[in-house]
Design a protein around this nucleic acid. Sequence first.
DNA 1: TAAACTAGTTTATAATATAAACCAAATAAT
DNA 2: ATTATTTGGTTTATATTATAAACTAGTTTA
Lengths: 98, 98
Amino acid sequence: MFKDLDVILHSQLRLAVVSLLISVKEAEFTYLKEQTKATAGNLSVQLQKLKEAGYIDIEKKFKDNYPQTMCRITPKGIRAFEEYVENLKAYLTVKPKN
Amino acid sequence: MFKDLDVILHSQLRLAVVSLLISVKEAEFTYLKEQTKATAGNLSVQLQKLKEAGYIDIEKKFKDNYPQTMCRITPKGIRAFEEYVENLKAYLTVKPKN
DNA sequence: TAAACTAGTTTATAATATAAACCAAATAAT
DNA sequence: ATTATTTGGTTTATATTATAAACTAGTTTA
């Protein structure tokens, strides 16, 4: 009935990040920080976790002399998100009494 | 864009419990334990938290000589669940690029 | 050149989830 | 009848997670 929810994705900030990356395909650290209103420290930690899980790729570059962290969703990340959403549905809908 | 998710409800077990109670209106501890496949200890703790939040009522009785813990959702619990689901939608759908 | 800002990371702490241990009573087995 | 097992939980200890605070390394502005 209730399938286990992906613990990586069942986190407000990580879910928001993945959700954004699925929409935009590529986003800077600062953009994600603005959109999610997360603190930089928290975002940094959660991005590492998403990377470790293989859900996102992180590319570090320089732009206009400043460091720039670019993030992209991976196919694995897309699959995980889709499965998470699917599993979550069972928790959100009213069940028939059986 | 991303509203804060209710921290009481953004927990796999507590969400499952509330989801069940919205369907059935009344459920025993043992029923919730079976349906959620939670350990008794974990369920006990999470039910207390839901009670403290005012999301459920807990009634302790005896049935066939054994203790029986009955749980019911409260109006506040229903409202919180509905708001949680509404807020969560923003995390689950692909956003338009603006 | 000092102050303030950008773009982060690391670390310490608070909060949370979970399992393990425990409790009281009931029932079953010897 | 007393020992073992089961029921229906609670409490407590520990592991995990989230978060904020502090820090790093450099850039820009005054």
